[in-house]
């Protein structure tokens, strides 16, 4: 496997098909990218655990491999597939969208149907279509034809090209940036620190099932028993012109976001101070997350076994849980720089 770097690495990670419960392809890709960098293993849940030994406290990086998606619940007589969401997806970003349907072995293209506007009643035009009324069209004309390619319990994910756009091409659009971004940051960090003296005994967990309730990171933390954990995420920033100023979380291109608190975790104040101090000393941009919303693997790692201190360093991201997550390439560099500086200079 070619070693891919930075945005090329993120693009390739986002392209992998990996809804929660179907992360094997992402795991294979990550292990391939880490070959020769450090030791990796796959635990019984499907988490990838990488280890870069060092002298010092045990620190666990955590990024989840899974993406929000769908699961096929029925195949009808005419070959249309009914589905339910896997993870939290707004039905309004599903209707009429392109999807990939399948499993770790085989995938096929499809489209979520959207009845023509001409045939909708006035009422239908005003209301979002419920997921229970949607179906995936793979072009099959019968159940028999569809069943050659798709089985009940198979998965679906957004089919979405990775695009670099905007001023100087710094904005990145794609599916699954939540949280292949964190995976890419962890891979680049392991590569940057391999072979160098480390102030920590470093583990990186590429976890499964985050979008379903965080079970992957919990069992990995149980096995590793970290002293501290840094969760690498993509977080919604609500910085649109029609969002109330008080609800804005942060800005694009101004560095990673450090959380104080969200719906699952009150983050460790000492770790936040250390991150801020490191950023100031090394002149690395960083932002404080100004609003409490959502949750991530921290809540699970925080309370696994006898507990671990937790910090989250997240990418400011727009439109997450859609086929068009948007992040900023400058934040990728800022987050990698801050994380690597912290792990090099770790103070307990």
């Amino acid at each position: 496997m070619n070693e891919l770097k930075r945005i090329d690495l993120l693009r390739a990670l986002c392209a992998e098909f990996g809804p929660s419960g179907c992360e094997g392809n992402v795991a294979d890709f990550i292990e391939g990218q880490l070959r020769g960098v450090c030791e990796t293993r796959r635990d019984r849940m499907g988490n990838v655990i990488a280890h870069l030994p060092g002298e010092g406290p045990r620190v666990m990086l955590s990024a989840h491999m899974d993406e929000v998606g769908m699961m096929i619940t029925d195949i009808d007589d005419k070959g249309y597939l009914r589905f339910a969401n896997v993870g939290s997806i707004d039905a309004r970003v599903l209707c009429g969208r392109a999807v990939t349907v399948g499993n770790e072995q085989n995938q096929i293209s499809g489209v979520i149907g959207a009845k023509a506007i001409h045939l909708q009643s006035a009422d239908e035009r005003k209301k979002a279509t419920a997921v229970s009324a949607m179906y995936i069209d793979i072009g099959a004309s019968s159940r028999e034809e569809a069943e050659k390619y798709v089985d009940l319990g198979d998965f679906a994910a957004f089919a979405s090209e990775f695009v670099e756009f905007g001023e100087d091409g710094q904005r990145l659009r794609g599916k699954a940036i939540d949280d292949r971004w964190g995976c890419a940051v962890a891979i680049e960090t392991l590569r940057a620190l391999a072979g160098k003296p480390l102030a920590v005994d470093l583990y990186a967990v590429f976890s499964v099932h985050e979008e379903m309730g965080k079970s992957g990171a919990r069992v990995a933390a149980y096995a590793i028993r970290p002293d501290a954990a840094i969760v690498l995420e993509a977080t919604a920033i609500a910085d649109l012109p029609d969002t109330a100023a008080a609800a804005k979380v942060g800005e694009m291109g101004k560095g990673g976001l450090l959380s104080f608190v969200d719906k699952g975790t009150v983050y460790d104040a000492g770790l936040i101070d250390f991150a801020l101090e490191t950023a100031r000393r090394a002149d690395i941009p960083v932002q404080l997350k100004r609003y409490s919303a959502g949750t991530n693997d921290s809540a699970q790692i925080n309370r696994a076994a006898d507990g671990a201190r937790a910090m989250a360093l997240s990418a400011p991201t727009r439109y997450i849980h859609s086929g068009s997550c948007v992040a900023d390439a400058r934040d990728f560099d800022a987050i990698c720089a801050l994380l690597q500086a912290m792990l090099t200079e770790w103070k307990d």
Binding site: S88, I89, D90, R92, V93, F165, R173, A236, A238, L240, A293, G294, R318, Y319, I320, H321, S322, S324, V326
Partner: peptide, 8 residues
């Protein structure tokens, strides 16, 4: 990209 509001 047309803006959307994430579920969170």
């Amino acid at each position: 990209v047309v803006a959307s509001t994430p579920p969170h």
